[in-house]
Design a protein around this nucleic acid. Structure first.
Lengths: 151, 151
DNA sequence: TATTGTTATACTCTATAACTATA
DNA sequence: TATAGTTATAGAGTATAACAATA
């Protein structure tokens, strides 16, 4: 065949348009951190959402499932299994809510408290790694700017 | 029952720990933008990933499926259906790759080009809305800091 | 041997409808 | 009438194994 082939081939992919979007950059950064999170949290057998739930219970002893769902944007049916699993692992307990017989307060067990302490240390390390190329001031700026988008 | 109930109840949920994490803030911001994206892109019948694929083809005529997968972190089997759908909608065409008979070059049709132009305008508007509380300088800083995390 | 594109398939994540007990 | 927690279920999204055609 003669070589006057006019079909274009792509050498290096031009991503400049997408890189000009905040959404694209936020998504890529989030995925990188989430991947690191998944890997580092494997030793504790926790996923991202499990850690968020445990940490919120740790800092809000007696929080209800509904409050967790509202805070983390989880649908109530999707939380049920997670809470059951955490309870079976004896990381949390359900106790009656003081003012509302429909609701159940969630509390950490001593084992749960210990795990949260360890997991939060892991997260601190992981966050330091992920933001290693940022100064402390840049890190604060970044979180401030992100909050302006979602809050 | 006597009211010396010692069970704690949570009034306002304390999220300060999670808000101190870059990953948490990045995730929340990403979800807010993604939700807006989904809503605004509904008129074009495009999801986030469809737009990314179309936009990359627009700026890289002749790009292959593999290159799209590598750029967007998609598994090849998951791209097949998307490309088929876009082809059925007559937004893209497959043409032989000039140097590699295994590969297929992806190209926009005139209809596809028109849709990408419209969709990119929608995205610009949407990004402006999402970052309305940021100055132009802050927007640039935000993208720069996010890139330092994932690049 | 390695890579492109593909099929089949499974697993996770997320969303909705409907029920019960209580407010 | 509304809300908390739950069950069942469906739909997206994402991942792996294996194959034919070509490098």
């Amino acid at each position: 065949m003669s070589d006057k082939n006019t079909e274009p081939a792509v050498d290096k992919v031009d991503t400049s348009y997408l890189e000009g979007l905040v959404g694209y950059n936020a998504r890529r950064a989030t995925l990188v951190i989430a991947e690191s999170f998944l890997k580092h949290m494997a030793v504790h057998e926790l996923r991202l959402v499990d850690f968020s739930v445990l940490s919120l219970i740790a800092h809000n002893q007696g929080i209800t499932s509904r409050q967790l769902c509202a805070t983390l944007n989880i649908q109530p049916p999707n939380l049920v299994g997670m809470v059951n699993t955490l309870e079976k692992r004896e990381l949390i307990t359900r106790r009656p809510h003081p003012h509302d017989a429909r609701a159940v307060g969630l509390h950490l067990t001593p084992t749960g408290k210990k795990l949260v302490r360890q997991a939060e240390q892991t997260v601190t390390q992981l966050e330091d790694d992920a933001t290693a190329r940022l100064s402390a001031a840049e890190r604060r700026t970044l979180m401030q700017l992100l909050r302006k988008i979602y809050a």
